[in-house]
Every structure is written in structure tokens, then in C-alpha cells.
Design a binder for these strands. Structure first.
Length: 584
DNA sequence: GGCGGAGGCGCC
DNA sequence: AGGGCGCCTCCGCC
């Protein structure tokens, strides 16, 4: 639980400053102890709520903000130096800045390494970092402001840094609040599927039965179905084939194609075994505290700008267990997801009016069908995904030419991004996050293929690696720009919920700064879950309508923010439900 | 024993 | 021969 997740920093001075409404640094290079800082923030945030809030500038939201939350302090806005540094270091929009051309330093180290350096003054393994000067947030901040100012697109990069920083606040707050989780409902589900609870390491009844069935059907009395090697051998011995050849893998995808009595119980075994190991009783014990799942989100954890998560698999929550996500009594969930977000982002990025029009007022894939490009929604979807992921074969590959004829600008953008990657160039998202450069090994392999001594194998390998990297950059632009849309969406939702909270509290005759009855978020709606293109807000039932309006309004606002007057829609599917499983 | 790769599979 | 992740288990290796 987040209250004890981060070590208290009582002895550590924290250096902070904040920006006023015009972006000027009001207070810089002031050192606080944690206690005095808490008091200072309380005053600032309470007295300035009705104005534009200060933007706190600090080195690392993830290591610092949880302490504030634990002390019942929320801040409205911040600037995260660590996350911003990573963006500015790599962005093509700031490539000529002093920050981008400097040697790697402490701001390029991982958060854990940076913490070690901060606390001990030395790094354990990295000589280059060890020789770097101690981190100076004020100097770093000045360096970052200069990088932004030197950018060819300062508005975009500034927006990206603000969104990334707001995301860091949201991530810490969501972890702190936790996703409401009904342990009893989860246990019921496990008992229904697996049988009565068993100690760790023991196979539940239902799995034991299925294992017996599989052993009988394969004539292998001692087979362990958890061992891929044993299983594959047994399947081969039983004569199972795939495409006329002996089975080489036990993947679901291959097994489903095979007609044999063992397949059904085997797939069922796999499914339940997965449930047990990923979201079984041990998972409940480890991750659910007082009816909440406190997932740790990692903003900027994926190179494309998507979030990653650590612990409990928050971003892989199977549909199977979503029935355990239940709102508190008197509360409900507003669940919203952006419909066909990535293709809509692609349409806007490439200014493809025809594709944008196909998504106007309707399901984008249906719109593609209605335009006569392909026959079915399923075809439209697989073709679009193929365009964004770089499929070349199968149904997707066959449909691509038709898509390319109908939407030359959109498909041209994905092709250009792929070619750039194949050359070893970087690509950049809407707001300015750039892809990493390929590794030295990759560059060497490409150079090797042009050498006189190059063998056919060298050339094949180089071509294959070039195509792999091209698929990465092709996807990077779309996935990364979609991640920016989602970050801005969440930031806007958070801002509007904050305003809604102030109004509501004022309506009850309480001052916004007054203490709240139910912990940090009081009776206020707050974000509790995020999944790439989907959010959940936990809200008192009476406010659900207003929350739905906030979420919808935010999506519209963000479309304008990122793409101006380009006529692209970002429709949402919004559901107000007591139980996450009932959404969609 | 711990570590890490591979296989597999959950989410988008 | 389809992009991005995290996590679990098995299994070979040190």
C-alpha cells in the first residue's frame, strides 16, 4: 500500500521551485525539509485554489509525491524533471539543445540509480555517472527551459512535458487511492472455476481432474501438463500434426487448429492454470489491501510513451476477473474508453480526410465498410491493425492494397515511418517524443551487409533486422501519439474533476481546504484505473452524470488541443456501472 | 540455491 | 515473416 511504499524523506532536503501563471520561475533554489515543505505546500495549494495553481518543479514525482499523499496533501500541477529530461534528451525537436548534446549524466540514470547517487554521492557500477556532478535541480530546470525555448515546436514539446508530468501525478494518486476490489467476489469466482482453495503449490481440484483427462487421452500416466517439453513430446507421440508436420509448439493458436480429443481439455487446463498463477489466491493475498488494488504505474515506462506497471499486472487485468472490481456502496464507476483510438490518431496525424470522414459519427471500422473499401467490420479492423503493425502476410496483407488506395495519406505515413526505421533514422510523435536510435549491433549488421565480404546470410540478416526496426518505428508514431492523446485526456479529466470537487464542496458550505471525511479524496470523484485508451472514475452515484460529462468533454477538448481544426472525432464508449465486468 | 532465457499468455 | 508491455513457470546453467 502506498502509505508505506516510499521511504519517508525526513532527513533529505528537497529542492523545489514553482512557476507562476506566465511560466516564470517564482521561487527557485529554496531548500526545504519534508516537514516544512508539507506546510508550505498546504498553504500554497489552499490559498490559490481559485487562481491558476502553482506548478511545482521537482526532480521525481514517483519518489516524492507519495510522501505528500500520505500526509494528505495533493498538488494540482507539477513539472517532473526526470521524465522531462528523458523526453528532451531524445526529441528531434530539441536535438540541437545543450541538454541533448551533453554527455550522459545523473539525469539520464534510472530513478533507482539516481536515488543511490543522491543518497550516497556515488554510483555503484557506472563510472560515467559516478564522475558526474551531484544533481542540481535548479540548474537542470534552467537547462530544460532553454531546450524548450530553442525548439522548433516549443508549444508541442511544452504540452508534452506538461502532460507527462500531470500523468505522473495521476499515476501516484491512482496508486494511492487504489482500484476498489471485492475479495469475496474474486474468491467466489476462483472457487467456481478451480474448486476449493488449496495451499500454494498444490493443484486445485478442477486442474487435477483436467490433468487426469489429458494423461488418459495421451496415454502418458505421469505427464506433467505444466512442462512444455513433456507436453510437446507427448503430443508428438500421440501423432498430433500441424499443417502436415509434427507439432513444434504448444501455443494455443496452433492447438486450436487441431482436431483431437485432447485439445479441448488441454486448452481448458491452460486457461485455468493461467487464472491460478496470474490472478489466483496468492495474487489476492499479495495485492489486495483493505479492498483496494494499489497498482504501481510507471509513466514513461515504455519507449513509446505508454505507461508500464509493476506488480500485480495492472495493465493485463484479464476480463475474466473484472467482476471483482466493484464500486463502494453509494458509489459507482464511470468507465470510458476511446473507440478505435489508434486509427483515428493515424487519420489525424496524416491529415487523411477520407479516413477521418469514415470515423465521423460512427464506428470507424463500420465507416470503412460503408465507404466500400472492404466487406466486413472484421476485415476493416484486421487491415487497419496490419497497417499500423506492419503485417505483410495473411488476410491483413491481402487487404492492405485496398486500404492504401482508399487512404493514401494515412498509409503513406505508416510506410514513411517504416522506411525511416529501416534506414536507421528516428521518428517523432505528434507532440515530440522521438524513437530511440537502433543499437550499435544493428548499425554494424547494416554496414556489414554492404561490405565486399558480405555473405548472402549477412545480407539476409541485415534485411530482416532492418524490417524489424521498420515495424517498430512504424508503430511508434501511432502508438506514441495515441499515448499522448491519452495523457492529455487524463490530465484534463483530473483538472475538471478537481474543479467539480471544489464546486461540490462549496455547495455543501465547506471551504475546499477543509478536511475531508473519507480520506484524501473525501466524497470526490477520482480516477482509479487507466489502461492505454480507457479510464475508470470512482464516484458518488449522485455525481455520475457530471463525471460522464467531464470525461466526454475532455476527449473533445483534447482532440482540438492536439489536432486543431482538423475534423477528426474521438468518440467514447461510456458506461456507468457498479461492476467493471458490466462495462462494454 | 540464484539467475536468466524461452515458452506461453494476459492486456492495449 | 505482427507493434508495445509484465508476469508466471519451467529448465538449463553457474
Amino acid at each position: 500500500m502506498s502509505r508505506e511504499a516510499s521511504p519517508a524523506a525526513d532527513t533529505e532536503d528537497v529542492l523545489l521551485s514553482f512557476l507562476d501563471n506566465d511560466g516564470a520561475v517564482v521561487e527557485a533554489k529554496r531548500r526545504f525539509t519534508t516537514a516544512s515543505f508539507l506546510a508550505f505546500v498546504r498553504t500554497q495549494e489552499a490559498t490559490r485554489r481559485d487562481q491558476q495553481a502553482p506548478r511545482w518543479v521537482w526532480d521525481d514525482t514517483a519518489s516524492f509525491y507519495p510522501n505528500l499523499l500520505a500526509a494528505d496533501v495533493r498538488v494540482q500541477r507539477c513539472y517532473d524533471l526526470r521524465l522531462s529530461h528523458t523526453i528532451l534528451r531524445n526529441s528531434s525537436l530539441t536535438r540541437k539543445s545543450a541538454l541533448a548534446v551533453a554527455e550522459p549524466g545523473v539525469w539520464d540514470a534510472s530513478p533507482a540509480a539516481a536515488r543511490v547517487i543522491r543518497e550516497t554521492g556515488t554510483a555503484l557500477f557506472d563510472l560515467q555517472v559516478e564522475l558526474a556532478p551531484a544533481p542540481d535541480p535548479a540548474a537542470e530546470f534552467a537547462c530544460q527551459l532553454a531546450a524548450v525555448a530553442s525548439s522548433s515546436e516549443p508549444r508541442r514539446i511544452r504540452l508534452l512535458l506538461a502532460a507527462e508530468s500531470a500523468g505522473a501525478l495521476v499515476a501516484a494518486e491512482m496508486r494511492f487511492a487504489g482500484l476498489p476490489w471485492n475479495t469475496a467476489a474474486h474468491e467466489d469466482l476462483l472457487a467456481r472455476e478451480l474448486g476449493p482453495r488449496v495451499p500454494y503449490g498444490v493443484r486445485p481440484d478442477r486442474l487435477e481432474q483436467l490433468a487426469g483427462t489429458i494423461r488418459t487421452l495421451l496415454g502418458e500416466a505421469t505427464l506433467n501438463p505444466d512442462s512444455q517439453q513433456d507436453l510437446l513430446k507427448a503430443l508428438q507421440n500421440a501423432g498430433l500434426q500441424y499443417g502436415g508436420l509434427p507439432l513444434l509448439s504448444t501455443q494455443q493458436w496452433h492447438l486450436t487448429e487441431i482436431d483431437h480429443p485432447v485439445i479441448a481439455p488441454l486448452l481448458q487446463y491452460r486457461k485455468l492454470s493461467r487464472l491460478l498463477s496470474a490472478n489466483g489466491w496468492s495474487w489476492l493475498d499479495a495485492w489486495i489491501v483493505e479492498g483496494r488494488f494499489h497498482a504501481e504505474y510507471l509513466p514513461g515506462g515504455v519507449v513509446t510513451g505508454r505507461w508500464a506497471a509493476r506488480g500485480g499486472g495492472a495493465l493485463q487485468l484479464p476480463k475474466q476477473v473484472r467482476g471483482a472490481v466493484v464500486a463502494d456502496p453509494g458509489w459507482t464507476f464511470v468507465v470510458a474508453d476511446a473507440a478505435q483510438l489508434e486509427p483515428r490518431i493515424l487519420a489525424a496525424l496524416s491529415s487523411d480526410l477520407a479516413m477521418a470522414r469514415a470515423g465521423h459519427g460512427t464506428d470507424l471500422y463500420e465507416g470503412i465498410v460503408a465507404s466500400g473499401v472492404v466487406e466486413t467490420r472484421a476485415h476493416a479492423k484486421v487491415a487497419m491493425l496490419g497497417a499500423m503493425y506492419g503485417a505483410t502476410t495473411g488476410e491483413s496483407g491481402r487487404l492492405l492494397p485496398r486500404l492504401a488506395r482508399a487512404y493514401p495519406r494515412a498509409l503513406g505515413l505508416t510506410e514513411d515511418a517504416a522506411r525511416a526505421g529501416e534506414r536507421g533514422d528516428i521518428v517523432t510523435t505528434r507532440l515530440g517524443r522521438s524513437s530511440p536510435r537502433p543499437s550499435q549491433a544493428w548499425m554494424d549488421a547494416q554496414a556489414q551487409a554492404y561490405a565486399q565480404s558480405a555473405s548472402n546470410a549477412d545480407e539476409r540478416r541485415a534485411r530482416s533486422q532492418a524490417r524489424d526496426w521498420g515495424r517498430f518505428t512504424r508503430n511508434f508514431v501511432v502508438q506514441g501519439s495515441a499515448a499522448e492523446w491519452a495523457l492529455c485526456w487524463m490530465a484534463e479529466i483530473r483538472k475538471q474533476l478537481w474543479l467539480l470537487e471544489d464546486e461540490t464542496l462549496a455547495g455543501f458550505g465547506r471551504s475546499p481546504a477543509a478536511g475531508r471525511g473519507r480520506g484524501l479524496f473525501g466524497d470526490a470523484p477520482h480516477l482509479v484505473f487507466f489502461l492505454h485508451d480507457e479510464v475508470i472514475v470512482h464516484t458518488p452515484i449522485a455525481l455520475a452524470g457530471e463525471v460522464a460529462a467531464v470525461v466526454t468533454g475532455a476527449a473533445a477538448a483534447v482532440g482540438k488541443l492536439l489536432f486543431g481544426t482538423f475534423p477528426v472525432d474521438f468518440p467514447l464508449t461510456v458506461a456507468t456501472v457498479q461492476n467493471y465486468a458490466d462495462a462494454k
